[in-house]
Design a binder for these strands. Structure first.
Lengths: 211, 211
DNA sequence: GTCTATAAATTGATAGAC
DNA sequence: GTCTATCAATTTATAGAC
């Protein structure tokens, strides 16, 4: 399945809603294209030439919008990481019993996956080949540590069904959550709520999220 | 963590156990090196030059052993897929109640992950950029279908704890299993048995594998 | 079975016109 | 903001000596 992106028309002048002409490409729409192609072919497997073809502009035009290929990657990865860390700041993640916080973070993480799927998918595939990728991996590890603490506290409270080492449980649970990016399609038959409830049900033995 | 592989000595003549001289490189040991580097930097992110440096031989020497970069990938992916399909043929996967077969396949899949970790890891990261990769993805889907049938039958028998759609359960469970490749180290503190029991415990609600 | 040298194509990125 | 033309470096792969 090769996604066909912007027809050349998209790169040309477009009529705005009041009829004015405006440039078709801002950095954001270019980012959308780039992330889609990166996810399809892998970051290293994508050339600027391919990127340009999919965006419907020439290779050199891309450099008018962004500093280079790695800058595109950095912005994309930060978008995913910012969304994940925002969840950690929400009241549901910082107040109440650890097991409830954990359920909340699992639910919200899956919602972030739904809302920012291409960006999170890209993040999950980063290997650490460049400074940009290493920085992203370090931020991702910080998120993992936040969740691991919740799991450990829920285990101390005796609220985890499975008798599992908390660190192992964290890895397995978030391994499951992250794997969703490989097949989930937002807006499809399976709703985010069904999906999140299913995961919580499977790993924590509860059917519904309170609230 | 940049793995340091073969010292140059490895590429030179080596004394066999009876003192005879023999060439240091056969296709198999080259494959081991290649798969390690592919997993570290990604297949597309690895050049033949880097491969040669890690193997301790020159770039052109590699072409004496294999047809090219993609041939190395194909052999590696087949090794992982052959190991997974072998599990499907084992008696534990083909006889008895579906829930027992499922438990068996989960256990054995994790054992394959342990025994063939670099090869399975590489398989799990394939994106479909080349004919070789597409063929591997198709074989992988065939394995998924085999497991999905077991989950569906176990659900029909009423033997699945979670009230989940079988296809969804399959994806979540094997998403969890596959994610193990991202952090697991064979021969470390966590044994394969503990790991497999932990996964089965978490998703099927059982602590031990019979047998 | 290894090497050096090199081919042929592709890569990320820049210069400068419109 | 887009383009063509181009660069320097890198990439996969081959030729041919030892």
């Amino acid at each position: 399945m090769t996604t066909r992106l912007a027809a050349p028309a998209r790169a040309r002048l477009v009529r705005g809603r009041s009829g004015e002409r405006r440039p078709a490409y801002d950095p954001d729409s270019l980012l959308d294209v780039a992330v889609t192609v990166f996810n399809e072919r892998g970051y290293d497997g994508t050339s600027m030439e391919q990127l340009a073809r999919m965006a419907g502009i020439s290779k050199s035009s891309i450099y008018h919008h962004v500093a280079g290929k790695e800058a595109l990657l950095r912005v994309a990865l930060d978008r995913a990481l910012d969304a994940l860390f925002a969840v950690c700041e929400e009241p549901g993640s910082t107040t109440g019993p650890a097991i409830d916080r954990l359920r909340y973070v699992i639910h919200r993480s899956i919602e972030v996956l739904d809302q920012e799927l291409p960006y999170v998918t890209l993040l999950l595939r980063v290997r650490g080949n460049t400074p940009t990728e290493l920085a992203a991996l370090e931020r991702r590890r910080a998120f993992d540590r936040f969740v691991a603490k919740l799991v450990a506290r829920a285990a101390e409270d005796g609220d985890l069904r499975a008798e599992l080492d908390p660190a192992l449980a964290t890895r397995l649970i978030f391994g499951m959550i992250n794997s969703i990016a490989e097949w989930y399609h937002p807006g499809g038959e399976l709703s985010v709520k069904e999906l999140a409830d299913g995961v919580v049900n499977l790993v924590l033995g509860e059917s519904h999220q309170p609230g």
